[in-house]
Amino acid sequence: MINKIVSSLAEAVRDIGDGSVILLGGFIDQGTPDRLLEVLAERRPRDLVIATNNPSVNGRGLAVLMQAGCVRKLICSFPRAPNSDLIEDRMRAGELELEVVPQGTLAERVRSAGAGIPGFYTRTSVGTPLAEGKEHRDFEGETYVFEAAIKGDFALINAHQADRWGNLVYSGSWRNFNPVMAMGARITIAQVREIVPAGELDPETIVTPGIFVNRVVRLED
């Protein structure tokens, strides 16, 4: 019987090793996989590359992982938070590499990885510092810039409900990057609030089909 439900957070993140590329769902502090990140931080992995929209704004999740010195590179659109001096101090000390990416380009780079597309051309960022050094190409009189896919070793995401096949639904604006990151990684791990029997989620409204999900762990109440 297929069963993607694992019994603990620690088991869910057991094989995330040094140097892993990890994609994170969430937007500001909406639908972030905080508990998975905090339990991962206890293992002190080194040199992680994290792709996410923004660092933690609530001192939880990614902030804990960064404070533990586990992150070598941050790929994100908005590296600001009330306590983001953590980022700026680490950058100045040469301990953290930052790659700033327009938000839609970040989503599409990860979606591309999930769809087997090595990259794509977009008009976003043409003429700005973020396009410097990248391949440019004209299509029908417009200039576009090439953006490469971002493939994750792991994706850590947050969902509302799951079943044992790994089908997921979300709640409100907590969906955001979660379904996108789920598609872009070799192993996707979801922290969820509720697990329901297979067949209970309406097939018409499942947002992330279980094919994109490897492990599900339910948060303690």
Binding site: Q103, G104, T105
Partner: peptide, 11 residues
């Protein structure tokens, strides 16, 4: 002195 942040503005 802040880290550069673009968000969705360019898109």
């Amino acid at each position: 002195p802040r880290a550069p942040a673009v968000g969705g503005a360019m898109d």
